[in-house]
Nucleic acid binder design. Sequence first.
DNA 1: TAGTGGTCTAGACCACTTT
DNA 2: AAGTGGTCTAGACCACTAA
Lengths: 254, 254
Amino acid sequence: MDQLFTATGFDDPGSGPLYLQLQRRIAEAIASGRLSPGSSLPAERDMAAMTGLSRVTIRNAIQALVASGQLVQRRGSGTFVAQKVERLEQALSLLTSFTEDMSRRGKSVDSQWISRMIGAPAPEEVMALGLGADEHVVRLERVRRSDGLPLAIERASLPTTVLPDPGLVEGSLYLTLDTLGMRPVRAVQRISAANLGPRDAELLGVSPGVAGLRIERIGYLATGRVVEFTRSLYRGDAYDFAVELKLAPEGQAK
Amino acid sequence: MDQLFTATGFDDPGSGPLYLQLQRRIAEAIASGRLSPGSSLPAERDMAAMTGLSRVTIRNAIQALVASGQLVQRRGSGTFVAQKVERLEQALSLLTSFTEDMSRRGKSVDSQWISRMIGAPAPEEVMALGLGADEHVVRLERVRRSDGLPLAIERASLPTTVLPDPGLVEGSLYLTLDTLGMRPVRAVQRISAANLGPRDAELLGVSPGVAGLRIERIGYLATGRVVEFTRSLYRGDAYDFAVELKLAPEGQAK
DNA sequence: TAGTGGTCTAGACCACTTT
DNA sequence: AAGTGGTCTAGACCACTAA
């Protein structure tokens, strides 16, 4: 960190904007390990003094690194190199719950409940769950953590006819459904990517704008009845989903 | 747009930072349609004069909307509301190529080649393709577009023993492999989310930092031989991947 | 209380696009 | 040539955290 923030080497003409030059310097220092995870950077005002740049320029350089999750800023405290997050991989070919998936690979799992409630369904929920008039839904909203690290936000909606009481779910949702004879045997998922909003980012402990994996799942019983409608948001830097694809059988091709 | 940028209504105490208040105003105007896709916003200096805020604050408000793809800025030209992008959905259960997938739903497909070359494999490629010593790889890099809109960047690597000449691929890679008797029947994909870097964002016509869907695929012949290693980056706002999951058969459970 | 990041300002010059 | 976004500065006050 000693010669990282010097005034030397900032020659505008060839190397682009100053804030990008500084950003590159810091990114390389992190990648090379010269700045190790958890270590703190100098205060913004100090960096400005050391480099001869203005504080606004310093902030501009830092901003992208915060947005991409490489740095973390805490007001009143400082700027720090983010902890490395081990990237987990989930097989998508099998229908397993978060809890089962994690414990299979020896990770601890816990949930931080945000809300558990019964209410009138939103139009989106009526559609997804195929609800009749005056049917109600149970909503379970929680942050899923593994080894203490927030990995995903899970927002599940189920008809009260499937899950009468949200208090029944403690750990695994699928385990609870199992005991009720309501475990889905089939599910359809839609996967997309989106920048995390401020609220979701805070729940996951990352900066707003970081890329997240958004997954919508509708689970079915063997009878074809819909039992769950779950919207999850995974940290993009912490999760891989693996899928195995097969060629369509000749007769089935369309 | 007439009363969108007035000085009224910016009372700090209750509503948070000024730039967030303005950002919210603009986002709502876009969502409600008062600002329609393609229409231009006033120049930053004009917005500053109209609202009584400084230009820096205006830029701060606009920045997040640009980062999330709702606005587009063009130097020397202006700030515009982004065109709406129809969200496409791809079934992941079947092994199909981009070209086949798109034409099945009646979209035009074209590719913009970035490079087609033969070279020595990178370590990553040796790993994925299971290459021997002095085997070479064909690299195909292109931007995939549908109806003229860039949707994905595709970077494919194949052993020269599978595809001797990159010039053989014009449209669909899988169609070309088909004629060579080298079409994969099975593939494994890994899906994750990442913020797009400046180069990839430019190729896709979005702003750096926008969330993208990253997909790595390894394709196998019936014999088990690896034929392709493809890394793709999809626009997160334009693509959904759909997957159907099934419960593990009892006997196969582990 | 001292130090940190968060916000905000007024003004400046540059690079680019449009006319 | 005029207008636009892109970059940069010096200085200020606020909100939060830590000792």
